[in-house]
Design a protein around this nucleic acid. Structure first.
Length: 451
DNA sequence: TCTGGGGTCCTAGGACCC
DNA sequence: TCTGGGGTCCTAGGACCC
């Protein structure tokens, strides 16, 4: 641990709502709620005017509307927020090269990396005020709250104490007493479940936590969580500020306005999600081996199914195929409210082998907008298994405007030929899902590619 | 008032290998 | 023939964060 309060935590105040108020002067001074505006939407950010009515982040928009009917309810504009965020982060990087963004509106700044040493509380206070002014100027008027201390934990907690537009610097050496009177839930990582378990052990404040011995804590909340909590409670936090954290997974998910039971519709939606995941992987020059499908039932129970390939891929068609099979294996019950597709086990390289983009790139493939009712209008849906007397077994890549595009599997190497047919072509027949033989995805344990 | 979307990290059990 | 322990990988679920 360091001897001066050189870790800053910078937190933009009501960020999404503040950007909207900045861009639309008519909203200034009024309650603004940014989040999902649909039936199942939740609040991302409420302006301070809306918070007076009890509107909070993560609250359902329906409840927010009942608490504050006269607020402006806006869907998020992530591209705009991203641009403002970048401008703000640039101001922090001008102060120190060591900046760790936690989200669009939050970051740690390590002042020791800029060569500043022996900082007093007054020094840090002045630096924080300068930074806030620079942020305000660079972002067109956004305010930030800044906390500073000898560790990430202290800086993070401090930034929350004088919101909005505040600065709190915790002097070196006063950390444990600073934390002692606070509720355990101020410690990042202590959520409702952990708080509940701790309270059963009579622990409500950090002071209570400081009395507990480590073994007892581990018995209550588990080994990793227990030992990290034990150290955080006594303000023993030496976690470094890290500027380049690598991405571990990329995923897309969607909650539907009403639950969906139709598997063919879900398969088509899953295909689109696979495409979006693929686009984002390619943009980031990433590829991954594990494909995961997530489903959420009407009662909110959530299930995942995953499958790990022999080598990494960023190819939409490979991700879509695996996702469709995982979806076929998933219980759907009386319908699901959410579907998600993700890729993890990421590598920053792409295996030049098997079903990766280098081979698929040769075959032109028609990408078709998903029809609103794919099965009823077209008779085919993306991912559906089909057969043709001349070309053999294949699967539908796209359909629309009276035509259906099919990728055929061949015995030798992928990709097979891609052909387009009229939807009423009598030679093109549908094959029941799950009856496909010789499924030739590069899947672990099936083709001997693993060591 | 029924609960988003993007993530991270941890746990636990089973398979498999040495 | 029976019984092992440790390490790694994979899968599923859960807690948590913004």
């Amino acid at each position: 641990m360091r001897g001066d309060p050189s870790v800053l935590h910078v937190d933009l105040d009501a960020f999404f709502a503040a950007v909207e108020q900045r861009d639309k002067p008519s909203l200034r001074g009024k309650p603004v709620v940014v989040g999902g505006v649909g039936l199942r939407g939740v609040v991302s950010t409420a302006s301070y005017e809306a918070r007076k009515y009890g509107v909070r982040s993560a609250m359902s928009t329906a409840e927010a509307r009942s608490r504050c009917p006269h607020a402006a309810y806006l869907g998020p504009r992530f591209e705009v927020y991203r641009r403002s965020s970048q401008a703000v982060m640039a101001e922090m990087r001008a102060l120190s090269p060591l900046v760790e963004p936690l989200s669009l509106d939050e970051a740690f700044v390590d002042l020791s990396a800029s060569g500043l040493t022996g900082l007093t509380v007054e020094d840090v206070q002045a630096i924080a005020l300068d930074l806030k002014a620079a942020i305000r100027k660079a972002s067109g008027g956004l305010t930030a709250s800044v906390g500073a201390g000898t560790s990430k934990l202290i800086a993070k907690i401090a930034s929350d104490l004088d919101k909005p537009d505040g600065v709190v610097v915790v002097p070196a050496g006063t950390e444990a007493e600073f934390l002692a009177p606070m509720q355990v839930t101020v410690i990042p990582g202590v959520g409702p479940a952990t708080a509940q378990r701790l309270s059963m052990a009579g622990v409500r404040t950090v002071a209570d936590l400081q009395q507990l011995d480590e073994d007892e804590l581990i018995r209550q909340v588990g080994s990793a969580h227990g030992s990290s909590l034990y150290r955080l409670a006594i303000a023993a936090d030496d976690r470094p500020v890290v500027s380049d954290r690598e991405t571990k997974s990329v995923s897309v998910e969607d909650t539907f306005e009403t639950d969906i039971i139709d598997r063919s519709l879900l398969a088509a939606i899953g295909d689109r999600m696979a495409h979006r995941v693929s686009e984002r992987l390619q943009k980031a020059q990433l590829s991954g081996r594990t494909v995961t499908v997530k489903t959420r039932m009407h009662d909110f129970t959530t299930h995942t199914r995953s499958s790990t390939l022999a080598g990494p891929t960023d190819d939409a068609r490979v991700i879509a195929r695996v996702a469709r099979r995982l979806l076929d294996d998933s219980e759907i019950g009386g319908g699901i409210r959410l579907l998600g597709v993700g890729v993890s086990s990421l590598a920053d390289w792409i295996q030049d082998d098997l079903f990766t983009e280098s081979e698929y790139a040769e075959a032109p493939v028609e990408v078709v907008e998903l029809p609103e009712r794919p099965r009823d209008q077209v008779g085919f849906y993306p991912g559906q298994d089909v057969a043709h007397p001349d070309y053999g077994r294949g699967w539908v890549w796209g359909s629309g405007r009276g035509r259906v595009t099919v990728r055929f599997e061949t015995a030798d190497t992928p990709p097979g030929p891609v052909r387009t047919f009229a939807v009423d072509d009598p030679d093109l027949t549908k094959v029941a899902i799950g009856s496909a033989e010789g499924d030739d995805e590069p899947e672990s344990g099936q083709n001997g590619l693993n060591e």
